[in-house]
């Protein structure tokens, strides 16, 4: 009898879950980083860079819900945090889509996807410096629509609290102007599954100390498919950031990355990425402009037994050139393991 009850309960639970449309997916991201020079800040250990559980389901006939909880290794201890918790709808107003809650800001290319979905292991320099190691997420409202044009043109506008931005260890403080952003994107179809997406982003914020930030970006992603194989992937982002400090000084920087990857077989891919970042405001004590530039190059190979398990080996070298001298060299090798359990939602292009 007990066995029957247990089986019945299991069946009912499963049916209940199936009836609600609840999907659960877990993702694991393990990275071993090995420094190859003295200055490298590579951790030299296998770390759980990210462990994420996502739940998503329709709430009712209008709203859908998403909840994602992530754990990250920070300084040897594991920190849990809510990455995303929001309701969304494309049925509330015809032609509009809404997000209300906490979510990854809909800006640029990389910031709109989870770290374990990236086509490379480590974030580009410009993304790390202007945004975060993974992504900027915040609580607020985002609205999007396909504009009534003859060609594909999609507009996303968002306003979020702005109490926190990027790398933060506290609950943050109320800003003078909350985080606000806009992205305009177009898409060019080539063949079935192949195409080019181009986007432009603006983001602004004025934090509690009166520090004003403005970011303008361009992003592009090109994919060429042959059957099920993505034969070519080329993605890039160009970002300009201006910071106006409360002390009346300012800092302007421009950063860029270009990543290209060739799919040789459904299991094996190899790629290369170039990073660069320039600080236009660097001065010495005599207020003379200091010529500087940051460069980085990464070579990588990925092997996947399925879309649910991927191994990636990458070798990167970054350095800074300041007035003819090379400094801050960081050479490292990284071995990454990414796996997904459950039904992962479909990726954007």
């Amino acid at each position: 009898m007990n066995k029957m009850i247990t089986l019945l309960l299991v069946f009912l639970s499963t049916s209940a879950i199936a009836d609600t449309g609840l999907e659960i997916v877990a993702a694991g991201d393990l990275v071993y980083s090995q420094s190859l020079n003295d200055e490298s800040a590579a951790t030299e250990k296998l770390a759980v860079r990210g462990a994420e559980v996502m739940l998503f389901a329709p709430i009712d006939h209008i709203w859908d819900g998403v909840f994602s909880l992530a754990a990250h290794d920070e300084g040897g201890s594991t920190n849990f945090e809510v990455h995303e918790l929001y309701v969304s709808s494309s049925k509330l107003i015809d032609g509009s889509r809404f997000k209300i809650g906490q979510f990854f800001l809909g800006i640029g290319r990389l910031n709109r996807s989870h770290q374990h979905d990236w086509p490379f292991t480590r974030a580009p320099k410009v993304h790390r410096d202007f945004l975060a190691e993974e992504a900027v997420f915040d609580a607020g409202v985002e609205w999007g629509t396909l504009l009534p044009t003859e060609f594909y043109l999609d507009l996303t506008i968002g306003v979020t609290s702005g109490h926190r931005f990027g790398h933060v260890h506290s609950s943050g403080t109320k800003p003078k102007t909350p985080t606000h952003y806009m992205r305009l994107a177009t898409f060019v179809d080539f063949t079935r599954g192949s195409g080019l997406e181009l986007g432009t982003t603006y983001l602004g914020r004025n934090n509690s100390q009166g520090e004003k930030m403005q970011i303008v970006g361009l992003d592009s992603t090109f994919k060429w498919r042959e059957g099920k194989l993505v034969k070519w992937l080329v993605t890039s982002e160009l970002m300009y950031r201006k910071l106006d400090f409360a002390s009346a000084s300012s800092e302007e920087e421009l950063g860029f990355y270009l990543f290209g990857e060739r799919g040789w077989t459904p299991a094996f891919r190899s790629g290369i990425r170039f990073d660069t970042l320039k600080n236009f405001s660097e001065r010495n004590l005599l207020q003379k402009k200091v010529n500087n530039i940051h460069w980085g190059a990464t070579l990588q190979s990925s092997y996947q037994t399925s879309e649910f398990f991927k191994t990636r080996l990458s070798l990167s070298h970054e350095f800074r050139r300041v007035e003819g001298l090379t400094q801050d060299k960081d050479t490292r090798a990284q071995l990454q393991f990414v796996f997904i359990i459950g039904a992962h939602p479909a990726h954007d292009f």
Partner: peptide, 27 residues
Amino acid sequence: KNAFLPLLLVLILISACDITGKDTGAN
């Protein structure tokens, strides 16, 4: 053609500034 627009913009921006970090005598 649209595929080359962002690359062209990048090249224009790069050509407008030094990308080698060379010595200008500032230090």
